[in-house]
């Protein structure tokens, strides 16, 4: 790795620690949220250093992008409502407890983790990759070996969107105060780029880092940016329209794939021989679209209008 690499890692770790500290302790909430977003971006660098490019892509798009947008828009709501004193952080007491307790915990964890042999499943994944239908191992794990996790995870996303709808209507106006006048134009300009990048990542996913998750995340982040740029949210909650179908599509397809295996007399989620490749591609498209749309739905923070928005977007 070389000395330069080690120095870089140490600096990165120090920066991450400082940002995490700021995110939990900064006096100003806005400062804390921004620290957290930068923390997410730097984490993406750390993932690259740890040879996990798929996670780096997802972290940049979801961890920093989508979560950041969610946090900032929530802050916008809170800041206008909560009084200033509530935002200020009361310095926590109990240092006498936290310094020794934290130190002890840190010691125990580090000691435990330091001795880990980390045998890993690299060889097993490699051996099974040939019959998994894809060449990229992460995709093989996500949509073949551990497809059940992915099914439940898309379920969690859909459930989160339904839960948020159940809390109330989406606030209006939805668009937070514009931090920069250039954002709308930039957002419109960038959206096609986001779509292209997402499509490219999805296509790449079968043989290289990429695939449904980063693609969906990038597309979702792009859609949120469009919303920030003043586009009208186009999702409707009407029973008659197609939106409820489209949001559920990923989970429906994954469930159908699972049950199909059983009906064919095989195990749940077992793909018939020779069809794994195309089936996984199909599921990836569905999962990626679901992730993108559901991320966008999460951002709305409430049930969208049933039949269309009164008034025009900006």
């Amino acid at each position: 790795m070389g000395v330069a690499g080690v120095i870089f890692d140490v600096l990165l770790a120090l920066a991450l620690t400082w940002l995490a500290w700021q995110a939990t302790r900064a006096a100003d909430l806005f400062h804390a949220v921004v620290s957290f977003i930068v923390f997410g971006l730097l984490m993406a660098l750390a993932w690259v250093r740890l040879e996990a490019p798929d996670i780096a892509l997802a972290e940049a798009a979801i961890g920093a992008g989508a979560t950041g947008a969610l946090l900032l828009s929530a802050l916008d709501r809170l800041a206008s409502r909560e009084r200033r004193r509530r935002l200020l952080y009361e310095p926590g007491a109990a240092w006498g407890f936290w310094i020794p307790a934290g130190g002890a915990l840190l010691g125990a964890l580090t000691l435990a983790a330091w001795k880990l042999p980390a045998p890993g499943l690299g060889n097993e994944v490699r051996a099974a990759l040939g019959v998994s239908g894809v060449e990229h191992p992460v995709t093989a794990v996500l949509l073949n070996f551990r497809a059940l996790d992915t099914l439940l995870e898309i379920g969690v996303l859909l459930l989160a969107a339904i839960t948020i709808w159940s809390l109330g209507r989406a606030p209006s106006p939805l668009i937070p105060a514009m931090p920069s006048p250039a954002l709308p134009a930039l957002g419109r300009l960038l959206f096609p780029v986001f779509v292209l990048v997402a499509a490219y990542l999805l296509w790449r996913g079968s043989h290289a880092p990429g695939g449904a998750f980063p693609a969906g995340a990038v597309l979702g982040a792009g859609a949120i940016l469009m919303l920030l740029a003043g586009a009208r949210p186009w999702i409707r909650s009407s029973e008659r329209g197609p939106w409820r179908w489209i949001l559920s599509l990923g989970l429906v397809m994954l469930l159908a794939a699972g049950i199909a295996g059983t009906l064919a007399g095989q195990a749940f989620f077992e793909y018939p021989p020779g069809t794994a490749g195309p089936l996984i591609l199909l599921l990836e498209v569905a999962a990626g679209l679901s992730i993108a749309l559901l991320l966008f739905a999460l951002y709305l923070r409430g049930e969208p209008c049933e039949h269309g928005y009164r008034g025009k977007g900006r």
């Binding site: 099974a128 070996f145 497809a147 749940f268 989620f269 077992e270």
Partner: peptide, 10 residues
């Protein structure tokens, strides 16, 4: 699930 035995499968 999926015919994959542990440790790889669920």
């Amino acid at each position: 699930i999926g015919g994959w035995t542990a440790p790889l499968g669920i």
